[in-house]
Simulated scan of single mutants.
Amino acid sequence: MPTGQTAFFHQFLRRPRQVAALAPSSPSLGEMMARQLPAQASRVAELGPGTGVFTRCMIDCGIAERDLVLFEINPLFAGDLAARFPQARLHRLPAQELARVEAAPFDAVLSGLPLLSMSADEQAAILGSAFSRLGPDGVFIQFTYGPKSPLRSRVTKGLGLSFTRTRRVWANLPPATVYVFRRPRVRAAAQ
């Protein structure tokens, strides 16, 4: 079964909490997500790649397919991703498993997960796992349809994260904003 608009909507109907969108992300949103990668990024983990829109945009921006690590639990989407991106490492595991199955460091973790529909504990587990595998300048990139940060404030504060956000991407259904989360830089003690 192909993963076009119809298949995506079918997956939404079957797994609404997991898919959490009526349509796949647009190439415009994918381009905005990929533009947030650090300039020298090479190794990237993608959480919830779905139909592979962000995956394709990252490859188009210069990330080698073999340097992508994908986490997708939807069987239909995972099968399609394996066929379309055979050089990427695909885990059919929840995003929280990143730290258990992958070694550091990643330059970025890019997420298509529906964080707004998750509890604070689920968000903290995902972000904690991701940041445990990010290098010192690594970033966590997430989009949201909402008017504010997709992370609950207690998660942001608990992990000591700061963030920036992009302008709204209107060429997406619904329009979305991209957030880039960072840890504070640790300064070396003066000697």
Rank of each mutant, 00 (worst) to 15 (best):
L81H: 03
L151R: 00
C57I: 05
V178C: 02
L134I: 13
K157H: 14
R165P: 06
R152P: 10
G52I: 00
V44Q: 06
L98C: 06
M1E: 14
F12C: 02
F12G: 00
T156P: 07
S149C: 08
F131C: 06
A20H: 13
P24M: 01
R92V: 05
D121P: 09
L47A: 01
A95P: 11
L90E: 00
M1H: 12
D80L: 04
P105I: 14
P175H: 03
L93A: 14
F8M: 02
M118V: 12
A130K: 02
G128C: 03
D67S: 15
A88T: 06
R84E: 07
L113N: 12
A7I: 07
L90G: 06
W170R: 06
I141C: 03
M58Q: 08
G62S: 13
S111L: 06
L47R: 05
R56S: 14
R84Q: 15
G79R: 02
V186N: 02
R17W: 11
A45V: 09
A82E: 08
N74I: 09
S111I: 11
I141V: 15
A83R: 15
H91W: 15
V69Q: 01
I141E: 00
S153N: 05
D107Y: 13
F143C: 09
A171N: 13
M58G: 12
A124F: 12
V186I: 07
T177Y: 01
A171K: 12
P27W: 03
E65Y: 02
S132F: 05
S28K: 08
R14I: 10
A130S: 08
P86D: 09
L76R: 10
G146Y: 10
V139S: 03
F143S: 06
T166Q: 01
Q40T: 15
G30S: 03
Q5I: 08
G4E: 13
T164E: 00
Q5Y: 11
R154A: 11
G135Y: 07
R165V: 02
L68E: 00
R183L: 08
D121F: 10
R154V: 13
I59Y: 03
L113A: 06
A7V: 11
S132Q: 06
P114T: 11
L116R: 14
S42P: 09
L98P: 13
F71M: 01
A190H: 12
R152Y: 11
A171D: 13
R66E: 14
R167V: 13
W170Q: 11
A23L: 09
G52T: 00
T6S: 11
R15G: 01
R133Y: 05
A124S: 15
K148R: 12
A82L: 10
P49I: 12
S117M: 05
D60V: 04
A64H: 10
P175L: 02
Q40A: 15
F8T: 03
F71K: 02
S26C: 08
R92C: 05
R17P: 11
S119V: 05
Y145L: 08
